[in-house]
């Protein structure tokens, strides 16, 4: 395999470049996916039937904690990629591990949040609003869950094989994915929670 040393490792081979472009296009598709969910959410936001409205069920504290966790994790994975660029394998693995732990904590709070909604009578089947709310949040949460496993696999591979063009490429792509989930969350935070609480 030809390796081009003038570029960062993750771009080093032809296949790596293809992978990164392909992943950007995939993220384009993901944007459409979440855009459709958001459009649906905005359409149904006030169609609450006999159930509660957003303002009645949203709680600021857990949402703020979630936001904080996810934003920090986006920062730490950035550090991880930086460590990778300068060839510091252990630092990179540590930052990735921290990222995943933060992600896990996010997921924990989100699960708490879901049980809370069910508790206060905002379960999946209550109204159009609750249905689309939980589906949208759930889709994001499912992405995070997949990310946790994926990230774990990547850490294991870096541990085993070191920083090769292949593992660097995977790590970099994973960081794109993780940042993307963060961006989606910022939209969820602003346009679902804050807007709903106002």
């Amino acid at each position: 395999m030809k390796i081009d040393n003038s570029l960062p490792l993750e771009y080093g081979t032809e296949q790596n470049k293809l992978n990164i472009l392909g992943f950007w296009i995939f993220l384009g598709a993901e944007v459409m996916l979440f855009a459709t969910l958001f459009a649906t959410y905005f359409t149904l936001e006030h169609r609450i039937g006999n159930g509660p409205a957003g303002a009645e069920i949203f709680e600021l504290t857990p949402v703020l904690i979630e936001t904080l966790l996810l934003l920090t994790s986006s920062f730490t994975i950035g550090l991880g990629v930086h460590a990778m660029r300068i060839g510091k394998k252990n630092a990179m693995m540590t930052f990735f591990a921290i990222t995943l732990l933060l992600g896990l904590a996010f997921l924990g709070v989100e699960i708490y949040e879901f049980t809370h909604y069910v508790h206060v009578g905002a379960g999946l089947q209550v109204s159009a609003f609750t249905g689309v709310l939980l589906t949208t949040l759930g889709t994001h949460g499912a992405h995070v869950t997949v990310g946790l496993f994926w990230g774990l696999f990547i850490i294991l591979q870096v541990k085993k094989h070191g920083l090769t063009p292949a593992t660097a490429n995977k790590s970099f792509i994973f960081s794109l994915y993780w940042h993307f989930l963060d961006v989606v969350w910022i939209f969820i935070f602003s346009f679902i929670y804050l807007k709903g609480m106002m």
Partner: peptide, 16 residues
């Protein structure tokens, strides 16, 4: 899963 997104009741919207 019994959501009401496209239904005629509980706020659902068939035209969606």
């Amino acid at each position: 899963f019994g959501t009401h997104i496209f239904s005629m009741t509980n706020g659902g919207m068939d035209m969606l």
